[in-house]
Amino acid sequence: MSVEVEVDESDLAEMVEQVWESYLDPEGVSPLIPTYDENQPSEVHSSVSITGSWTGHVVYASSRAAAKRAAAAFLAMELEEVSEEDMSDTLGELANIVGGNVKAMLPPGAQLSLPQVVLASESSARYPNAQRISGVYGMWEGEPVSISMWQVSTDNKEEGA
């Protein structure tokens, strides 16, 4: 039996805004401007998987330029100083923070995986049997950034029937 997801798009948007307020835009001068464009391009992405009472993925995706800027803001560095490792660690932690907060809103018994980071384009092929159920899509200082939730369809429906 699949569990009704209790995290809607406005919840996700609120978490994303809190991440910006906390780490990426503490002064409140360069927020993520919503575009609602589910097909906006991405060059890098990171994700955490949730298993248990709900099964799926929470995915961060953005351009390289946005990822670099995120790392610079997160780690208080100059843009030129940001290394691949800095970018990778930052994207992993961003996915982890949003994923952890999503997990907290699910019924008890959900587990969070360690983050995975791919410094290459996001592709739906990466998530077999998963369907996008909500997402926050926007531009951050002119660069595309998105955070989305993907639900894995489980094949054990007969258990609940």
């Binding site: 948007a13 409140g28 001068v29 360069s30 927020p31 993520l32 401007i33 919503p34 609602y36």
Partner: peptide, 16 residues
Amino acid sequence: AGKEYLVEARLIPVAR
């Protein structure tokens, strides 16, 4: 002042 973008970011979902 200086929060113009934040205002915009928060009003877009309301408008939608």
